Amino acid sequence: MKKSILSILSLLFTLTLFACSNSEEESANSGNTEQENTNEGRTLEHASGEVTIPGNPERILAPYLEDSLVALGVEPVAQWSIGEDVLDYLQPQLGDVPTISWDLPLEQTLSQEPDLIIFNSPSSLQNGTYEEYEQIAPTYIYKDEVNSSWRERLTRMGEILNKQDVADEVLAEFDEKVEKTKESLEEAIGDESVAFIWTLGEEFYVFESSRYGAEVLYNEVGLTQPEFIQNLEQEEQWNPIALEKLGELDADHVFVVGEENETGFEILENSSVWQSTPAAKNDQVYTMNNPSHWTIDGVIAHEMTLDAVTDELTK
Rank of each mutant, 00 (worst) to 15 (best):
E176Y: 12
S210G: 10
K281Q: 13
S210F: 08
V257M: 10
L243C: 02
E227T: 15
V221H: 02
V257T: 13
N270V: 08
L249T: 04
S276E: 06
E236T: 03
I241Y: 07
A188N: 08
G264V: 08
I189K: 11
V194E: 11
Q284E: 09
V194F: 10
A172P: 01
E179G: 11
E233C: 01
E186R: 12
P226E: 07
L246H: 03
E227I: 13
V206G: 07
D283N: 15
A251W: 08
F255V: 12
G264C: 12
L268T: 12
D168L: 02
V194K: 11
A251E: 10
E176K: 13
E208P: 00
G222T: 10
V221D: 05
E192H: 12
E169I: 02
L268N: 05
L185V: 10
G258K: 06
E187P: 03
T224N: 05
A279K: 13
E227Q: 15
E266V: 06
Q230P: 01
V285L: 14
F228S: 05
E203A: 03
T277Q: 01
Y218C: 00
I197K: 02
T287A: 11
N282A: 04
A242N: 14
G213S: 14
P226A: 07
E186Q: 15
E202K: 10
T263F: 05
V221N: 12
E266K: 10
E192R: 15
G258I: 00
P226S: 02
G247N: 11
W238D: 01
L185R: 08
S210H: 05
L268M: 11
W238H: 09
E269G: 07
E186S: 13
A172R: 15
P278D: 10
E260M: 11
K245D: 14
E215K: 08
Y212V: 08
